[in-house]
């Protein structure tokens, strides 16, 4: 990764000033992100006040509510509460499926682009990069416009006689999935492209020389060698998909919540339960950090080899 050069005397020209150079970064990210995250952790153990806000009293209420069901009046023996775990499960499932679909479409695309001659390659790459830079909100709104009941897709299918009545896509799990897949597809293509571009095609030739067919070569040689790019792309799709808010909110409607919707509802929506929102956010952050930790471990092990 950028920034982790083995240091030596050659690269120590700014050593005397390094504390001053790093200070703004430490101060800003430390004070406005690290500290807030820690504060959020504290909040998740506080007591809820009636409208937004908290009372500074320690409480396990939020986590209790998340994981355990004690009945309507809180006096029944605790059972596992499935509502919120279910939302997490659906989010993970949606994010996983989106990652898989992105991989399925993104890998061939990345390979195709990376194997074009240099002049046309930059044009293809440019075409994939543009949506990557376009506002996610606008992209999601565009998708909503496209797939709504009397939107262009349904109009087209009815004009072609494929459908008699509009096929409802909006406000379904399918729409959320499509939204995630569409939103994060460029995040998959670009890292795989970078890996394929560095791929040594002599390996493919060597495999062919040793009687491997193209598809066997793809499976046994190419995919293992470009795996770091595939994993990086998968993480770049999975992590933001897991915490997505726009796709479920705009395309999924009220019934197809994901974690992002649940958290937002605690702060901006009707629920107004800050400690509980903080607890849900903490659970999400933990899941993401575990995924990233496993990734980092596999990277260092690959690096050590």
């Amino acid at each position: 990764m950028a920034g982790q050069l083995p240091s030596n005397d050659d690269s120590a020209a700014f050593a005397p000033a390094r504390v001053w150079l790093m200070l703004p970064t430490w101060a800003l990210i430390g004070f406005f992100l690290l500290l807030p995250v820690l504060l959020m952790l504290v909040y998740s153990f506080l007591t809820k006040e009636f409208r937004g806000g908290v009372i500074w009293e320690f409480s396990l209420e939020s986590y209790d509510r998340f994981f355990l069901d004690r009945g309507l009046f809180g006096d029944e023996p605790p059972k596992i509460e499935w509502t919120y775990i279910g939302i997490f499960w659906r989010s993970a499932w949606q994010a996983g499926l989106a990652t898989l679909l992105c991989l399925l479409v993104g890998f061939p695309t990345a390979w195709f682009i990376a194997t074009r001659p240099p002049q046309t390659r930059s044009i293809w790459l440019f075409l994939v990069t543009i949506p990557y830079w376009v506002n996610l909100l606008i992209r999601t709104v565009s998708m909503k416009f496209l797939i709504r009941d009397n939107g262009p897709v349904n109009e087209l299918l009815m004009a072609l006689g494929v459908l008699d009545a509009p096929f409802t896509m909006i406000n379904t799990n399918f729409a959320v999935q499509l939204g995630l897949f569409y939103s994060y597809l460029p995040f998959m293509v670009l890292p795989i492209y970078a890996a394929v571009e560095r791929y040594n095609f002599a390996l493919t030739e060597a495999a062919a020389d040793l009687y491997a067919t193209r598809w066997v070569t793809l499976w046994l040689i190419v995919i293992p060698v470009v795996r770091p790019g595939i994993i990086a792309g998968s993480i770049l799709v999975f992590v933001p998909s897991l915490g997505a808010f726009l796709a479920p909110d705009l395309l999924g409607g009220a019934k197809n919540w994901m974690i992002g919707s649940l958290i937002e509802d605690q702060f901006k929506g009707a629920a107004g339960n800050w400690p509980f929102g903080a607890a849900v956010a903490m659970v999400l952050l933990s899941v993401v950090l575990v995924v990233l930790f496993i990734y980092a471990r596999s990277q260092t092990r690959a690096g050590a080899r």
Binding site: A202, L203, E205, A206, D209
Partner: peptide, 10 residues
């Protein structure tokens, strides 16, 4: 079969 210049070992 070929012995490649930079070996192309997998």
């Amino acid at each position: 079969n070929t012995v490649f210049q930079n070996y192309a070992l997998f």
